[in-house]
Each structure stands twice: as C-alpha cells, then as structure tokens.
C-alpha cells in the first residue's frame, strides 16, 4: 500500500516464494531519524512494529482485514540506519479472528517479537 499514511517510508518486499518472509532496508533518510534521536539515530520500536504491520498487510489471508490490536511486542535489540530488517510472519485463524505472529531481525539478531490481531471492517472501527 504505497502512499498510505505511515511513519516509515520503506516498504517490506515479500519473498517471491510466498514463505511469509519480507525484507526492507531501513534507510538513513527515513523521516523519523532526525528526531529519534538527534545525534543518535535509532529506529523507533513502533516503526519495527509498523514493518510487521506492513508485511501483514502485504500478505493478508483475506481482503478487508485491518489492525485491531497489538497483542504483544517484545523489543530485543535496537535497529539502526542502514540495517536490513527481515520479517518472518505466520497467519493463524482462531474463533473468527486473524492473528499473525512475527519476528523481525537484523544481521545482529532478533530485534522484536510481535503478535498482531486483525479484524474485518466493522462498525466499531467506523469513523
């Protein structure tokens, strides 16, 4: 979804084999870096979660799902400008809700473990 409102400019490229992995370069000119933090750029943890979110949207098991909840996120190590971030993601349906479980990592190891819940567009999410 290029052009969507997002704090990250890079877009994860899903692997061609459909294995549920995607990779994205965290470019030094990402707009968040000047303010996070001045003189010491660290990719915000929520932006790692955003890349998991974007990977999920790029691999939706059915159309019309939107993010309903971050069930859990553990931040394991920092991500810096120039890192290549890899996301490994698996979808699961249970009791009518779609969840994905993902691990995002750099060459230095795991950066975050994330569980997201998605829902179909419902009245609760209306404007």
């Amino acid at each position: 979804m290029p052009g969507a409102v997002s704090p990250v400019r890079g877009r994860p490229e899903p692997a061609a084999d459909g294995a549920g992995t995607a990779a994205v370069l965290v470019a030094a000119d990402e707009p968040v870096f000047p303010g996070h933090y001045p003189g010491f750029p660290i990719f915000p943890g929520v932006c790692v979660v955003e890349h998991v979110h974007l990977t999920a949207l790029a691999t939706l098991p059915k159309p019309g799902l939107r993010l309903a909840a971050i069930e859990s996120t553990r931040f394991l190590s920092p991500v810096f400008p120039g890192d290549r971030l890899e996301v490994e993601l698996a979808w699961q349906e249970k009791d009518g809700a779609w969840r994905c479980r993902a691990v995002a990592g750099t060459a230095r190891g795991q950066a975050a473990a994330v569980r997201l819940r998605f829902t179909e567009e419902t009245e609760e999410g209306e404007l």
Binding site: G39, G45, A68, A69, E71, S72, R74, G125
Partner: peptide, 19 residues
Amino acid sequence: VLTGQVMLFGGIADVVFHH
C-alpha cells in the same frame, strides 16, 4: 540519549485500537 540512564521500551501488550 548518550549519557546517564535512558528509557527503553521492553515490551507492549494488550493494545486495542477502537476508532
């Protein structure tokens, strides 16, 4: 962020987006 004690987020759980 370069000196002293800094705040790091270790984890976030049960965040629900309503609207």
